[in-house]
């Protein structure tokens, strides 16, 4: 079924797809996810600490971002904002949307994890002379991030795949390159399966990293009861 010509095409296009995967898809994901984590931690903490005003703002942000499609958000920033004089290049626009979008989801994950840390540990912190912020930073947050770790990794893996949407705002990432090759060679099925396999490889590597990370983070042991 797979004739030699098709094989050659697939082999030939593999590095052509992988390159933008490594130079665009991954950097886009890693930069955006790092920013998303920062946004998420702050957003979760202002809710956890019940800071008036900021908490409502956080809820509003999460409500809007989770309630609207990622693709629409990309279009608003890349095609919409220029109408009010805000021209952003496609890559930074993608970083912006992905970090804001994922930040909202991760914020919910982290908030739930913060709330799962037994309240008594906060009180114990005060009683040994720590301030609220010190207790959060040194006791509560580290435990929350460990709890949140698997879910956060889920968000990261989703993001890798979602970056394929940025082809719609002209980011030259893996999927865009694949589309171009397919348009030229008409081998849509084989090429799209090929790029799917590359996404799968990326996800698999990240899953391995997750497993490794979970082991590392498990240093303080769960009781086997």
């Amino acid at each position: 079924m797979l004739d030699t010509k098709l094989w050659e095409l697939l082999i030939d296009s593999f590095p052509k797809m992988l390159m933008p995967g490594l130079t665009v898809t991954m950097p886009l994901t890693l930069i955006s996810f790092t920013l998303a984590l920062i946004i998420a931690t702050v957003t979760a903490l202002v809710q956890f600490a019940n800071i008036k005003g900021l908490k409502q703002l956080a809820r509003f942000y999460i409500w809007v971002v989770r309630g609207t499609p990622l693709l629409v958000q990309l279009f608003i920033v890349f095609y919409g904002l220029p109408h009010v004089g805000l021209l952003i290049d496609s890559f930074p626009a993608a970083v912006m949307v992905f970090s804001i979008n994922s930040g909202a989801y991760c914020a919910e994950t982290i908030r739930a994890a913060l709330e799962a840390v037994p309240h008594g540990q906060l009180e114990a912190g005060y009683c040994v002379g720590l301030s609220y912020l010190q207790t959060i930073r040194r006791i509560v947050l580290p435990q929350a991030l460990r709890t949140a770790f698997p879910s956060l990794f889920n968000s990261l893996i989703s993001m890798v795949k979602d970056t394929s949407l940025t082809t719609c705002i002209t980011v030259t990432e893996m999927f865009m390159v694949t589309q171009r090759i397919a348009a030229r060679t008409y081998e849509h099925l084989a090429l799209y399966i090929e790029v799917a396999v590359i996404y799968l490889i990326f996800s698999t590597v990240l899953t391995k990293v997750q497993t490794w990370g979970e082991k590392k983070l498990n240093y303080y042991g769960r009781k086997a009861d």
Binding site: P118, A124, G125, R138, Y220
Partner: peptide, 8 residues
């Protein structure tokens, strides 16, 4: 219930 810091 002790309330030790579990990450320490």
């Amino acid at each position: 219930n002790y309330n030790l810091f579990e990450n320490k």
